[in-house]
Each structure stands twice: as structure tokens, then as C-alpha cells.
Amino acid sequence: MREEIYERLTEVFHDVFDDDSIEIGDATTAADIDGWDSLTHISLLSAVEDEFDITFDMKAVQGLKNVGAMVDLIEDMI
């Protein structure tokens, strides 16, 4: 389940950041990816929501510390 999510998520990252070489893991944070700032973060979240057909609430949005947390959240929501 998680692996599947990671596959789809990686595609989203490649798309949003225009970089097919990005690799993500549980510990990946904004600091690790070039161009992931507070503005692209929002685009990223929207793209993730579109991909998995979910809606993050504001609490979740503020609380995401790393990709692993995001994946956990996606897992809970689908």
C-alpha cells in the first residue's frame, strides 16, 4: 500500500518540481528538494490532493513535517 502511494507520489513530485530525478523517502523534507518552498508546497499539496482524490484539512497542512508524515496521512485518508 505504502509502496503504491510512494510510486504515485514520486510522479507528482516529478511533475510539480519539473525534475524526473527526484527520489523521496520517509525522511525527506523541504530542505532536501531544490525549489520546495512554502509557495510550491501549496502547489504540491493541491497536486497530491488531485492525484489521490483527497482533501487535506488545514490542521494537516500545517502539521506535515516530512514526506513520511504526508504518506501516513494519505494512507489514513484513502
Partner: peptide
């Protein structure tokens, strides 16, 4: 500004539809 203005605006229906 980011958490209470920017994000709510960008995640609003109007903006997402615009996108």
C-alpha cells in the same frame, strides 16, 4: 501571512478552479 492568508487563499475553491 503564509498560514492564515496565503494558504487559505490558494486552497480556496476560486483559486483552485482558476488553476
Amino acid at each position: 501571512m503564509k498560514d492564515y492568508l496565503m494558504y487559505p487563499i490558494l486552497r480556496s475553491r476560486a483559486f483552485r478552479n482558476m488553476g
